[in-house]
């Protein structure tokens, strides 16, 4: 996880196209300037970043379902619940699944766990559009390789 670069996902652990689910992992760093302010003497992962991590996880699932032909953008957050604190150094396991695939949009549900403890959950809505810039597509391809996106999962669809 590189919080300052908004790279909140480290690796894809499981991607199931048929079930329309994904599981990813993310290691919260021990140190970050963010923890200096959030909060002095009691560093915890900001809820907005946990929500972003759920959005990025959902986004990779959608990219897979859309065969990297369209880019999902977060449009709506519902029922975001921060159920417990996440501390520096903890390993997050993030699960996301598709709740609905509409025309040009999709709805997912996602949750973050540390071990077996549920830390947060949310329902997320995304718009998806053809990649608005070729550089973004290049970046997403590079990120896919970095986080171990299983290309074979979509190559035979």
């Amino acid at each position: 996880m590189q919080i300052e670069y908004f790279q909140l996902i480290d690796r894809i652990v499981a991607l199931n196209i048929g079930e329309k689910t994904i599981t990813v992992e993310a290691q919260v760093p021990e140190k970050s300037t963010i923890f200096e302010g959030h909060f002095p003497g009691y560093p915890i992962m900001p809820g907005v970043l946990l929500t972003e991590a759920m959005a990025q996880s959902s986004g990779w699932l959608l990219l897979a379902l859309l065969k990297f032909e369209r880019m999902p953008f977060l449009a709506m957050i519902k029922e975001a619940k921060m159920r417990g604190f996440v501390s520096p150094g903890q390993l997050l396991t993030i699960d996301a699944k598709i709740e609905h695939e509409g025309s040009g949009f999709a709805v997912t549900s996602a949750r973050v766990r540390v071990g077996t403890e549920l830390k947060c959950s949310a329902d997320l809505t995304f718009r998806h559009v053809p990649f608005p810039h070729p550089d973004l597509r290049v970046h997403m391809d590079a990120m896919a390789r970095k986080i171990g996106f299983p290309q074979q999962a979509i190559s035979h669809e």
Partner: peptide, 18 residues
């Protein structure tokens, strides 16, 4: 989008918004 989501679910269809 929210309305389309609710309509899709209620009627079991996919509104072709695009």
């Amino acid at each position: 989008l929210d309305i389309a989501f609710a309509i899709d679910k209620a009627f079991g269809i996919k509104l072709p918004l695009e």
